[in-house]
Design a binder for these strands. Structure first.
Lengths: 193, 193
DNA sequence: TGCAGTTAATGGATCGAGTACAACAAATAG
DNA sequence: CTATTTGTTGTACTCGATCCATTAACTGCA
């Protein structure tokens, strides 16, 4: 299925660049680190950077963004969480745990808001049923908040000591117990574990 | 109480600049409109722009941002909604209603995510009680989603035909009926109308 | 009238993110 | 050895945003 590589091989990778970026964030801070700095350390040109990332901020988020990209094609939350737990967002966890030292507090807030909203609309579309669309939107926001709260808790307590998927499952259970309906419409989303 | 104006009078205002900006967004689109374009039309220098706004995007959001700034010092949601209804965010409503034409679809999404998250943490802090902090976070996100959904519905149906505060009150009622507790801890927040 | 103090506008310089693109390099298939 | 594909590199450019020294407009007081 996977065809043989054609053309010039890639000179770097998202992981390499992200790692270089995180190192520099720790050393100099996020704002003081330029894209040129990152590529210099990674051993590629500045232009190349934008073949791997949309921008500087994406170095922190790309693992989670992959998850969200997949999530947009999947209908069940539980397998998604499991898959995320298998490919945990290292760089994000590092950034959350060392937010002040890296100077990424602001970027973490904006980036999270962005992606949590994305996930919220995703869930809302899935649970959109015969009922009030407003309620669907509220419910989507609540479950998205639960998932992201879980990710943050997991990262704050040193990603690795606990399993990410169980933490997310617990958070979803809390949301479920709150009384918010999670019954899907035509889709077959199950937010419970 | 209000002392007499001292020093050089202001050559412009947030409203003037925001109006000029919205005009240009409609004519040329958001991306094609530079800050220099806006200040040229408003009759001030480019530097002056940044005495009034943090950036280009703020021209759309400043009315709502004022509301959020006040909200951070208030403990009750209902009076806040009433005050917002008295000073409705014109430029934001215009942007929502003409998102495609103005090319602000992306900026609206990111800007909303940002501010909705801000409001969510604000509410979360208020309802933080003896119970699970995770539940407080989920509830805060749900109520914030309700409020913003209300604002959007209000703007989409031609801001003015309906009262903003009643729409928000209805949205909050939906969130309340969903089963999410809105009982405050030490604070005295009341999310109901 | 003139001077001091205050507040705001202005112009210029600078930085850095992000985009565009043409030229070049490294691989494969035949 | 050539055509094709894919990726890298350097360059130039736009624009948002910040900084800062200078200048302008206004008030209050002598």
């Amino acid at each position: 299925m996977t065809s043989v590589a054609r053309g010039r091989p890639q000179a770097s990778s998202c992981d390499t660049l992200a790692e270089a970026a995180c190192e520099l964030f720790l050393e100099q801070g996020y704002d003081a680190t330029t894209v040129a700095d990152i590529t210099r350390r990674a051993g590629v040109s500045r232009s190349t950077f934008f073949n791997y990332f949309d921008g500087k901020a994406a170095t922190i988020w790309f693992a989670l963004d992959c998850f969200l990209a997949e999530a947009s094609t999947t209908h069940r939350l539980a397998p998604m969480a499991a898959h995320l737990a298998e490919n945990p967002p290292h760089t994000l966890a590092l950034a959350i745990a060392n937010a002040e030292a890296m100077g990424v507090t602001f970027e973490l807030a904006t980036g999270r808001a962005q992606r949590q909203a994305e996930l919220a609309t995703l869930i809302t579309e899935r649970i959109h049923t015969t009922g009030d669309p407003l309620l669907a939107e509220i419910t989507g926001a609540a479950y998205a908040a639960a998932i992201f709260a879980g990710i943050w808790r997991w990262a704050e307590r040193g990603a690795g000591s606990h399993r990410l998927d169980t933490i997310i499952a617990e958070a979803l259970a809390v949301a479920r117990r709150s009384g918010l309906a999670d019954r899907p419409g035509r889709g077959d989303l199950r937010v419970a574990v």
